[in-house]
Design a protein around this nucleic acid. Structure first.
Length: 892
RNA sequence: GCGGGGUUAGCUCAGCGGUAGAGCAUCUCGCUUACACCGAGGGGGUCGGGGGUUCGAAUCCCUCACCCCGCACCA
């Protein structure tokens, strides 16, 4: 049996989280409870935070992922592990640059006015000022991360790790620089990687454009498709790109067109002559007209087709999305969407636009700014990904890394097995500048530091690559770069690899997969052995939260209103790995539970006497059944909480405690203990034991609850004087076999059922709680009979009985029942029907009638057109019938 | 097109081979000295449709329908 805690002072009469949450957090921090010690004897547990962007403000997704981490961290810490939760923030390249850009715009300047160096300075200033906000918000949530170890992805140490990795990968031939077609964001004016492209469904138009076939060498009519002046018709959703067409393609086996291969058509508007080529890969003869325009500079497939067929690349759109000189004088300088209108107008005028049809398709946009992606040929840096992906696939397949819920593994494999090279260069200013250096003769040197002179030609005119790295490049190193790697620091030795990663499934590809790749490659170890992917927080109807829908829940508002504990508990109880439907009313519901805990503690503390200081340890042989029962139930709860937490079943764990604390401890045990606690029943030893057990259950429950509700449990703990100065340093309960007592559970459960049966019977027969009866109970053996005699007082008290008669035959005609294997009989008196009862029933009938009418009106007719009336109405009708029958009986 | 998930009480979900569960909502009764952010009790479901395996299926298999989410394609 564990330690003793004693009452020190009373709890405030009202639960008011505002009164203590921030005070308690400050105390924890001041005492250094979040910092792991250097005890080499204890097993370690470590976890790194998914670093929030410095631009971030705590939203409900952060609240969820950090609550879940904190639950695990507090649980492990209390369970005796030397626990490190390593926090930090991400520099968030594009997001931050965009934000500071916007701030500059408000001052009427652009980053180009400042120049790169000054701009980056400004971003640092911004970071110093606002970049820590989210950290403060995480503290409000109760996050017990070791802030003394907080890291930032642009820290000197982390930057060194980034350069080290870049150089190493380059030397190993896994980073290369080359010209390729990449996803380009004309708004951010940078290349982005494949995963940053999001597809949006859109209603658009499909334009059919006629390309006249040139007369030279005119052969026989090739197809019925061609009428009048011979032409080839192509379909496109982006007519402005036709200005960059350098060919048309048909399938080489297509009977309609194959004779045209090698001939030329005239590109409308531009009046250029372009060839017809045959390409079996690009063209599906069964799709559309079977003719495809080829724009090698502005479409990925066309780019490849152009290479295959020797078609030139003609860039007609520039990096800001405007038409180039090559598009022709009337288009040059026009925005691509403006150009589209003008092109259409010209096509129309020239009679080249044969049809316009509505078309539904998806368009790639840049996830960060919603701008349509413009495929663009440019020189970028890439990571050759396959050699990194292979071992990462194996690590998950062979169980080195476990993904939870398991269903995500197939998504992971699917992506990893079809992965493309990673575009890592960004044309931004904010980020890790690529450690590549060019000399006057354009020789490339990739090195940790800028070389004094070119190793190839000796030139001392050295300039660094202007591009920076994708922000996810540095995040990919997070689990080890934050611990001092590539140095073998004490932290790295002690805490790497980490144990578990908890994050949202939305960054499985962006982050998780890449950490696995980099971790395996550079440390030779999987950076974590388990990954728990949490779902998305949605509104209470399962819809995505969005500002436009107005269904966004701000965690900071919630914390202000009901406290962090209620928010945390609500998030936990819904967190099974699937999406979480969250509504304010739900949070309110669980804040009632926090209140319940508060009040139960108040009750307990009213009855825990200071003289308990010298109370003996609990001796289960001396305990009464009811005490043994609640301890056994608590023990069972302890088992399932620990088991559920091990499996990241936050929902099961929190539900188990909720169920135990409210519906067993509060609803039953406290009520059952009251006669003894209030001195109405039992010996003074009974009283001592009851007090002792009350304290024991409160103590263990608080510790069990602490990871979920750190604040309220600590506040209550602080009002008790115990062995531990803080609940944070108290041990997490584990199941103890000595507390198991199936016999007590069986008997007390029977008592509960008997009480419920009597209550039911009373209500069914229309008696009020004031009416009292006699109950007959029969034990199956002398021991059980003794038990029921001993607990007769409880049955009488809670079931409101005049007498409990054990082992005697009830009078004839008494209602008999079998409850959990025990024969009981309730002796009801003659029922007295009052006028009141009749009137009440009549009122109810009236009410139910109105209910049916109003429900039907509310639902309207549409519900009834094809369907039966809804269950609500049917239920009410059934009830109406029932009431009418009851009334008839009463009136007889 | 490929892959994954879902369809269980009015709502949101858990259960995933053995007598239908929770929270919220609803109805009735009760301000009993921890708590009305409460207590006691009730009503409400042929577990999406169909077929199969089994002594037994919400739970396993097949099939259909609808919904959601990835990925790919998109002339």
């Amino acid at each position: 049996m564990p330690r003793l805690i004693l009452m020190k002072e009373e709890l405030a009469t009202r639960y008011d989280p505002k009164a203590f949450e921030q005070r308690i957090y400050a105390m924890w921090e001041a005492k250094g409870y979040f910092t792991p010690d250097s005890d080499p004897d204890r097993p370690k547990f470590s976890i790194v935070i998914p670093p929030p962007n410095i631009t971030g403000r705590l939203h409900i997704g952060h609240a969820l992922v950090n609550t879940l981490q904190d639950i695990i961290v507090r649980w492990k810490r209390m369970s005796g592990f030397n626990t490190l939760w390593l926090p930090g923030t991400d520099h968030a390249g594009i997001a931050t640059q965009m934000l500071v850009d916007r701030e500059l715009a408000r001052q009427g300047i652009s980053r180009f006015d400042l120049g790169r160096e000054k701009f980056v300075e400004r971003v640092w200033e911004w970071k110093e000022k606002y970049g820590g906000e989210i950290i403060e918000q995480l503290k409000r949530l109760g996050a017990s991360a070791d802030w003394s170890r907080s890291r930032f992805t642009l820290d000197e140490g982390l930057s060194r790790a980034v350069r080290y990795v870049f150089v190493k990968l380059y030397e190993d031939g896994l980073i290369y620089r080359g010209i390729a077609m990449v996803n380009w964001c004309p708004n951010c004016r940078t290349a982005i990687s494949d995963v940053e492209v999001e597809f949006r469904e859109r209603d658009a138009k499909l334009y059919h454009i006629d390309y006249p076939i040139e007369a030279s060498g005119l052969g026989p009519r090739a197809s019925v498709e061609m009428r009048g002046p011979l032409r080839l018709t192509v379909a496109t959703t982006r007519p402005e790109t036709m200005l960059g067409d350098t060919g048309l393609a048909v399938h080489p086996d297509d009977e309609r067109y194959k004779e045209l291969i090698g001939r030329s058509v005239t590109l409308p508007i531009a009046n250029r002559s372009i060839p017809v080529v045959g390409d079996a890969i690009l063209v599906d003869p069964a799709f559309g007209t079977g003719v495809v325009k080829v724009t090698p500079a502005h479409d990925k497939n066309d780019y490849e087709a152009g290479m295959r067929n020797g078609l030139p690349q003609l860039q007609v759109i520039d990096e800001s999305g405007r038409m180039t000189e090559a598009a022709g004088p009337e288009f040059a300088g026009l925005d691509r969407f403006e150009a589209r209108k003008l092109v259409l107008q010209k096509l129309e005028q020239g009679g080249f636009l044969s049809s316009v049809k509505p078309y539904h398709h998806s368009v790639g946009v840049h996830g960060k700014c919603d701008t349509d992606i413009e495929p663009m040929i440019s020189r970028q840096w890439f990571v050759k990904i396959e050699p990194l992906a292979k071992p990462s696939i194996d690590a998950v397949r062979d169980g080195t890394i476990q993904i939870i819920p398991e269903t995500w593994e197939s998504t992971y494999f699917n992506w990893m097995e079809n992965i493309h090279d990673w575009t890592i260069s960004r044309q931004l200013w904010w980020g890790h500048r690529i450690p590549a250096f060019y000399c006057a003769n354009d020789h490339i040197t990739v090195a940790m530091d800028q070389p004094a002179r070119c190793p190839q030609c000796g030139s001392n005119e050295i300039r660094q690559e202007t591009d920076v790295l994708d922000t996810w490049f540095s995040s990919a190193l997070w689990p080890f770069s934050t611990m001092g790697w590539p140095d073998e620091t004490p932290d790295y030795r002690t805490f790497y690899p980490t144990d578990v990663l908890i994050t949202g499934f939305d960054i499985l590809f962006f982050w998780v997969a890449r950490m696995i790749m980099m971790g395996l490659r550079f440390t030779g170890k999987a950076p974590f052995s388990q990954v728990f992917l949490n779902g998305l927080v949605r509104d209470e109807h399962g819809d995505k939260m969005s500002k436009t829908k107005g269904n966004v829940i701000d965690p900071l508002d919630v914390i202000d209103e009901v406290g962090a504990d209620a928010l945390r508990f609500t998030l936990a109880i819904f967190a099974s790995g699937r999406d979480i439907p969250l509504g304010k009313s739900r949070i309110q519901g669980y804040s009632a539970f926090v209140n319940k805990i508060w009040n139960a503690a108040r009750f307990a503390m009213m009855h825990i006497d200071i003289e308990l200081r010298d109370a003996p340890q609990i001796d289960s042989d001396k305990l009464r059944s009811v005490e043994r029962w609640i301890l056994s139930r608590l023990n069972d709860t302890t088992t399932s909480v620990n088991k559920s937490l091990s499996a990241f079943r936050f929902d099961e764990a929190s539900h188990a405690i909720y169920q135990f604390f409210w519906h067993e401890f509060c609803d039953w045990y406290i009520e059952m203990a009251k006669p003894v606690l209030l001195g109405k029943h039992g010996t003074s030893d009974d009283l001592k034991q009851a007090r002792r057990v009350l304290l024991e259950v409160l103590d263990r429950s608080l510790r069990l609850l602490h990871p979920f509700m750190p604040f309220v449990t600590e506040e209550i703990w602080q009002k008790l004087s115990g062995v531990e100065p803080s609940i944070m340093t108290a041990p997490y309960p584990i199941a103890e076999q000595i507390l198991e007592d199936p016999e007590a559970e069986r008997l007390i459960s029977a008592v509960r059922s008997m009480i419920t049966t009597v209550r039911n019977a009373r209500a069914e027969r229309g008696f009020t709680p004031k009416d009292r009866f006699r109950l007959y109970v029969r034990g199956n053996d002398p021991r059980e009979s003794n038990f029921f005699s001993a607990y007769a007082y409880l049955l009488m008290d809670l079931a409101r009985l005049t007498e409990v008669v054990v082992d005697r035959d009830p009078p004839a005609g008494t209602q008999q029942d079998v409850v959990e294997g025990f024969h009981i009989a309730i002796e009801f008196p003659e029922r007295v029907i009052t006028k009141e009862q009749i009137e009440r029933t009549q009122r109810e009938i009236e009410k139910t009638r109105n209910e049916i009418v109003s429900t039907e009106a509310r639902l309207g007719n549409e519900q009834f057109v094809n369907n039966a009336p809804p269950a609500v109405v049917e239920g009410s009708r059934a009830r109406l019938l029932e009431l009418k029958q009851r009334l008839e009986k009463l009136q007889q």
